[in-house]
Design a protein around this nucleic acid. Structure first.
Lengths: 128, 128
DNA sequence: CATCATGCTTTGCACCGCAAAGTACCCACC
DNA sequence: GGTGGGTACTTTGCGGTGCAAAGCATGATG
């Protein structure tokens, strides 16, 4: 059934641990959708994260140089603006390619076995 | 910029922690591609996992009743056959829907900001 | 001045992924 | 029959991490 050639067929090594994490995936998607950057509180609301959580994940992303943090003041308040770095953007897009591959693999497979419930996941199907 | 209506816009709560993990994502994708089940060693090779790793992840998936483990004998060897349960299949497909949404959100956003490198990720583009 | 709200950061812990070591079984081979 | 080796897993140990709760600093408000 499975041949030697299939070794690692589904290993998906491109799923970078830094990126492949729900909260950080949220953050990065938010940031790629807002190329001019987002203030901490907006990001927090978009991602549905607590303060502490967002802070920690931003630290990780910043450490990995996937996002940059610009700390300043606005309306007499401290304000951190988060942006995606060019590196971050590149790596995120690479990651998305792998993610796309996962979805495609799974959709093809699920389609092939007839046990129903696969509507809208056929890779050739466009969403409504 | 972001309105109240956007709260949680990118929170992706459907990214189930049990499923959203590289190794288990591998396992589930392998299993959905092999509806008749896979023996432990084949699964291990497909996913590029060590024995211990696969064992642990299977325990988690089995505990959550996303996969079933059938332990038996074949050719005088112990053999565990792993299958996806109907529940597992349903939940995995649900998860895939969310994953698809992530890819689509990100692709749209990345497309919209002009800084290049987005080839092949446009949601309207089919792979070659 | 006290209180409350905002905008984060730090702490603490429980959980988890991973590799290495361990167990069980079977099969040669001498 | 016993020893060595291979297959098929399971268990253990540990370093790392996500998360919530608590902490801290600043500014507005009564």
């Amino acid at each position: 059934m499975t041949s030697d050639r299939d070794d690692g067929r589904f290993s998906y090594e491109g799923l970078d641990r830094i990126i492949h994490e729900r909260a950080r995936l949220s953050v990065l998607t938010s940031l790629v959708a807002h190329p001019k950057g987002l203030p901490f509180p907006d990001l927090k609301r978009l991602c549905g994260l607590t303060d502490g959580n967002l802070s920690r994940h931003l630290a990780v992303l910043s450490e990995a140089e996937l996002v940059s943090l610009e700390k300043g003041f606005s309306l007499n308040r401290t304000q951190t603006i988060c942006r995606m770095t060019p590196t971050g953007r590149r790596r995120f897009i690479g990651y998305l390619g792998v993610l796309e591959q996962v979805v495609r693999d799974a959709a093809v497979a699920a389609e092939r076995s007839p046990e129903g419930g696969v509507r809208g996941l056929d890779p050739a199907t466009k969403p409504a």
